[in-house]
Computed example of a mutant assay.
Amino acid sequence: MEHKDRTEGLRALIKQGLQAVAHKDTLAHLGDRTSYIGMSDIGQHWECPRAALARKVLPTTSSLERLLTLQRGHWFESGVGQALVSLGLHVLPQLEINWQHHGVPIKAHLDFVLVWGAPVNAIRILEVKSTDKLPSSPHDSHLLQLHGQIGLLVKAWNKPVFSLRAEDGTLLHEKMTFPQLCHAHFGLQLPATAAEASVEAWLLCLSMKEVRAFGPYGFNQAMLDTALDHAAQLWGELADFRAGHISLAHVDCAQGFYPLCAYCEHNNDCPKFPQGVQMPQWEPALEKLAALKEQRAALDSEIKEMETVLKLVHRQAGTRDWVDTGNYRFRMSVTAGRTTLDRDALRDELAEIFHSEHVGGIDVDTLLARCERTGSPFEKLSISPIN
């Protein structure tokens, strides 16, 4: 019991330290986040307006696991920054853009902006996201955030709304145009308008073992308008909430299956989860099931690592035979991959064969739908923690 108490004490100490670091970093680089709309606020409002408003108006009580996840993002970002600077590149970390849209104060903080002056005149925005598993495609909220960043950079290029801070939060440059800031910080000459430069944005997703880049993305007026519209909606909801005109219950929440609901700090009274039957006696069973699933995930990861090691051992042994270890034997072999149907490729082939997207008066998609079979319904158990 004493050992458990000391272990919990150490966890509490680490949690307290992470909270202090997060609070200090936020004040130094982001300031009072309730006084403006940030790009991450816009992305979250796209996903769930209620969660975006709740994050602005309610205190957070992040768990140690949540704090570690957030800090992991900062640690990854710091590592990427060091890697870029070590190459001698001109890097602007956390470039700040202050913007007003119909009276709505907006601040964009760009993780990294790489700058090449004349004669190249190229600007590259890098937005860094840390994930447990790399996504096969970028999240819509991340894309909206990225398009908001590149959109404001292009629109505000020659306006005195750019600022840059040192690592400790000290202002280095304030209220400059983008060319002025780059000249003051790097001595680079940039054109007077963004149209004379190559401006692209990239989304960089990192896990503990891999990295995946999505892009490039260019300026898109429609996406910028969407981002600004969400900023205006959130600012209006924030004003109405502070005035007592609305509560969180009046704000839309994410609909349908949405995996991030389980991680939302404000899901305890979310209208998406109406009051159900109270059966507290099953709480221990759910806790045990959650723990077993975590153990299974850890075991699956450990099994995969061991299999990778043994495959490497067999390859280095230079044999195709079985390797005898005493009570076990193992061998690495190559098996054929699974055969799957590429629906998009089949659609293109059919349209090409019949020189049209209509086959005998039937739309190709309709023809494909006729050949699909839907499996029998099955039961699914959904479990979501109440935070």
Score class of each variant (00 low, 15 high):
residue 231 A to L: 08
residue 276 G to A: 04
residue 222 A to C: 06
residue 261 C to W: 06
residue 204 L to R: 04
residue 200 E to H: 09
residue 270 C to Y: 00
residue 176 M to L: 14
residue 193 T to S: 08
residue 267 N to M: 05
residue 259 P to C: 06
residue 179 P to V: 01
residue 171 L to N: 09
residue 199 V to H: 00
residue 286 L to S: 11
residue 223 M to W: 13
residue 258 Y to R: 06
residue 246 I to C: 06
residue 198 S to E: 09
residue 282 W to M: 13
residue 243 A to F: 11
residue 231 A to P: 01
residue 237 E to F: 13
residue 215 G to I: 02
residue 218 G to N: 06
residue 192 A to S: 15
residue 271 P to F: 02
residue 187 G to H: 09
residue 265 E to G: 10
residue 250 H to M: 13
residue 231 A to Q: 03
residue 201 A to E: 00
residue 204 L to Q: 05
residue 214 F to W: 07
residue 200 E to C: 06
residue 171 L to W: 14
residue 236 G to Y: 10
residue 259 P to A: 08
residue 179 P to R: 00
residue 260 L to A: 09
residue 276 G to K: 03
residue 171 L to P: 10
residue 237 E to R: 14
residue 223 M to E: 12
residue 261 C to D: 08
residue 171 L to D: 10
residue 219 F to Y: 13
residue 231 A to D: 06
residue 234 L to C: 07
residue 272 K to F: 11
residue 263 Y to E: 05
residue 188 L to N: 01
residue 257 F to V: 10
residue 229 D to C: 14
residue 197 A to T: 08
residue 264 C to L: 05
residue 237 E to T: 12
residue 167 E to S: 07
residue 279 M to S: 10
residue 172 L to A: 02
residue 273 F to K: 09
residue 178 F to Q: 00
residue 212 R to W: 04
residue 216 P to T: 11
residue 256 G to H: 10
residue 274 P to D: 08
residue 171 L to S: 12
residue 270 C to P: 01
residue 173 H to F: 05
residue 190 L to D: 08
residue 247 S to A: 09
residue 239 A to R: 14
residue 175 K to T: 04
residue 271 P to L: 03
residue 268 N to T: 11
residue 242 R to V: 11
residue 203 L to P: 00
residue 241 F to N: 11
residue 229 D to Q: 15
residue 251 V to R: 00
residue 213 A to K: 12
residue 216 P to I: 10
residue 201 A to R: 00
residue 217 Y to S: 05
residue 258 Y to S: 07
residue 217 Y to C: 06
residue 175 K to L: 04
residue 194 A to I: 03
residue 173 H to M: 03
residue 257 F to M: 08
residue 254 A to I: 05
residue 281 Q to E: 14
residue 236 G to V: 13
residue 232 A to G: 08
residue 190 L to Q: 09
residue 238 L to W: 12
residue 254 A to R: 06
residue 177 T to I: 02
residue 259 P to K: 03
residue 272 K to W: 07
residue 185 H to T: 07
residue 201 A to K: 02
residue 207 S to K: 03
residue 278 Q to H: 11
residue 218 G to K: 07
residue 174 E to V: 10
residue 197 A to N: 05
residue 182 C to E: 02
residue 228 L to K: 05
residue 216 P to K: 10
residue 227 A to Q: 04
residue 287 E to K: 14
residue 212 R to S: 12
residue 233 Q to A: 14
residue 180 Q to A: 05
residue 239 A to F: 13
residue 183 H to V: 01
residue 211 V to P: 07
residue 172 L to R: 05
residue 200 E to F: 07
residue 191 P to I: 03
